[in-house]
């Protein structure tokens, strides 16, 4: 029986820049930063209140995993904003939106009341996008 998701992958263009984005802008916690030889490291982060889910920030580059052609194509698609990486929840969507915006995070969609709840969309430093929603999907979002 499957019980949990423990580790998942986010493909990034530049691992050091992604470190700064996920740790210093989104406020994620560093879980592992293990050097694995030249130009290679195992880098994982977790959402602040979800320590048992690790997001592996994997650089896309020519390697055992990717031919140069595949890496170039994947980088192109990431930069074009094709990949949605998940839904992140927050206590207060307007406060989170204002804070991330102040830190330079690029939003594709400001918090908007949809029929299914209040939602915003933002991009990471590579071009992957995330949905941002209040913890309770039926929460209208505004706390004050």
């Amino acid at each position: 029986m499957i019980t949990k998701m423990n580790v998942t992958t986010i493909h990034v263009i530049d691992q050091e820049r992604a470190y700064d984005f996920y740790i210093n802008k989104l406020g994620f916690k560093l879980v592992n930063d293990i050097p694995m030889g030249p130009d290679s490291r195992w880098l994982t982060v977790s959402p602040p209140e979800q320590p048992d889910l690790q997001l592996g920030l994997f650089p896309v580059k020519e390697s055992k995993m990717f031919t140069k052609e595949v890496a170039d194509n994947l980088i192109d698609l990431i930069q074009k904003g094709i990949f949605g990486c998940g839904v992140l929840t927050c206590n207060d969507i307007y406060a989170t939106y204002e804070e991330l915006k102040a830190k330079g995070v690029e939003f594709i969609k400001a918090p908007t009341k949809e029929f299914y709840g209040t939602q915003a969309l933002f991009k990471d430093d590579s071009g992957n996008f995330f949905s941002l929603q209040p913890l309770n999907n039926f929460d209208k979002g505004d706390k004050i």
């Binding site: 307007y94 939003f107 594709i108 969609k109 400001a110 004050i144």
Partner: peptide, 20 residues
């Protein structure tokens, strides 16, 4: 970025000051 105004959500000025 779409054209949704950030001013549309309630009490935006309060949020900005608290976040600040």
């Amino acid at each position: 970025m779409n054209n949704i105004s950030t001013e549309e959500y309630p009490k935006v000025y309060l949020y900005r000051r608290i976040v600040q």
